[in-house]
């Protein structure tokens, strides 16, 4: 009975450990290196529409970005952070994500198909297939 239980619980423990280890490795690989300049890029239809160096920002300022003709989103930028405050999408997921200052937390709008991705200035450039 006991060995039967062990037989069942060991694979579970191995599975959980594997998932945790792989996620941590991925987190470390993708983590932004500290004290580096953070650049935010807004992608729409596979190209960069807008780019801002967040390390050079100071007070909060609002920017209107035109993704394409007639499609405008309003963003706010401040020192090392960016957020969307207005977008004409249904779910408003992009707005709900609020401030982001990490490459691990890109802003993605599934309705309008635009993305805001942060990266260190020296990071590899984005590969888009």
């Amino acid at each position: 009975m006991n060995s039967d239980k062990a037989k069942k619980i060991i694979p579970v423990i191995i599975l959980i450990s594997a998932v945790v280890i792989i996620s941590l490795i991925l987190l470390i690989i993708t983590r932004h290196k500290k004290n580096e300049e953070i650049v935010a890029k807004i992608y729409y239809e596979n190209s960069v529409i807008y780019e801002v160096d967040l390390s050079k920002e100071d007070d909060v300022r609002t920017v209107e970005v035109e993704l394409k003709e007639g499609l405008v989103i309003k963003i706010e930028v401040k020192k090392d952070a960016i957020r969307v405050i207005d977008a004409p999408c249904k779910r408003k997921d992009c707005m709900k994500m609020s401030w982001t200052s990490s490459p691990n937390k890109p802003i993605v709008c599934l309705d309008l198909h635009y993305m805001i991705i942060l990266s260190g200035k020296s990071d590899y450039d984005v590969v888009i297939e």
């Binding site: 998932v19 890109p106 993305m115 888009i128």
Partner: peptide, 23 residues
């Protein structure tokens, strides 16, 4: 699907969080 549809490898940054949440 998000990676394929959004066409960006950057969505991969979500991966660790999603994997950890699945536990």
């Amino acid at each position: 699907v998000a990676i394929i549809v959004m066409g960006a490898s950057q969505v991969i940054y979500y991966l660790p969080l999603i994997m950890l949440l699945s536990i």
